[in-house]
Design a binder for these strands. Structure first.
Length: 219
DNA sequence: AACCAGGAGAGAG
DNA sequence: CTCTCTCATGGT
């Protein structure tokens, strides 16, 4: 239908998207990005949820002085639920936010200290994954965008776009396979940050195009 | 008015 | 290990 280009190399696809959209400067947040609690909070809130609904929740958290892990770790569950309602799944997410905040604050005092442990990136990743409510994509988003660690974030769009643009052919590619494939070609943290953001941008863009053609999505 | 959004966990087979 | 269900609001 749409005669899509095909890319043999990851880097060619990256350059295509970058020249099409330019730098995205993720993760959207206020202030210094390194060690910023707001990024981790947003990463949890945006699980299977549009960013627009997350922004409202973040704004309400900000108004209530709850946009830090320390304040969330002290707040009661009902207060958190009320603030984040717009992001959906608020019962789960309030619990996840609080558990994550309590873990980081109690064990490391701050997100910065968590990143600055004498640990490999993969060990940091394992530690995040051990927290209930933090899956691969959320863990990797936190590592890449708040910790500036060289990790690639794989989401639904990544798999769909890689198939659509001929980067992967078979169905054997799962989260880890795609992550390792990208990381083998792109090592630079800023490029890894831009790549995931550009993929989301392109994914949304294609959804719009396909919606105009009365198709639910491009998957 | 169905359908999906920058997922993750629990349970079943 | 791989499916399937659930969680829930807001925009199209």
């Amino acid at each position: 239908m749409l005669n899509m280009r095909h890319f043999k190399r990851i880097l060619d696809f990256y350059n295509y998207l970058y020249s099409k959209y330019g730098p995205q400067n993720w993760w959207p947040c206020e202030g210094e990005k390194y060690g910023n609690d707001e990024i981790a909070i947003g990463a949890i809130l945006t699980q299977n949820t549009s960013w627009k609904n997350v922004e409202k929740a973040i704004q309400r958290l900000r108004e209530r002085g709850l946009l830090s892990l320390k304040s969330i770790s002290c707040a009661d569950l009902e207060t958190i639920k009320e603030a984040i309602k717009s992001s959906g799944f608020y019962n789960q997410k309030a619990e996840r936010l609080k558990l994550f905040a309590e873990y980081i604050i109690c064990k490391h005092k701050s997100l910065r200290n968590f990143f600055e442990q004498n640990k490999s990136v993969l060990d940091l990743r394992q530690e995040l994954l051990s927290i209930k409510g933090i899956g691969k994509e959320t863990a990797d988003s936190i590592l890449l965008y708040a910790g500036f660690k060289p990790i690639f974030v794989v989401d639904k769009y990544t798999l769909r776009l890689f198939k659509l643009y001929g980067i992967i052919d078979d169905e054997k590619f799962d989260y880890e396979a795609i992550r390792l494939l990208v990381e083998s070609e792109i090592k630079d943290v800023n490029m890894l940050q831009e790549f995931h953001a550009l993929i989301v941008r392109e994914g949304k863009n294609l959804n719009k195009k396909f919606a105009n053609q009365k198709q639910t999505n491009f998957g």
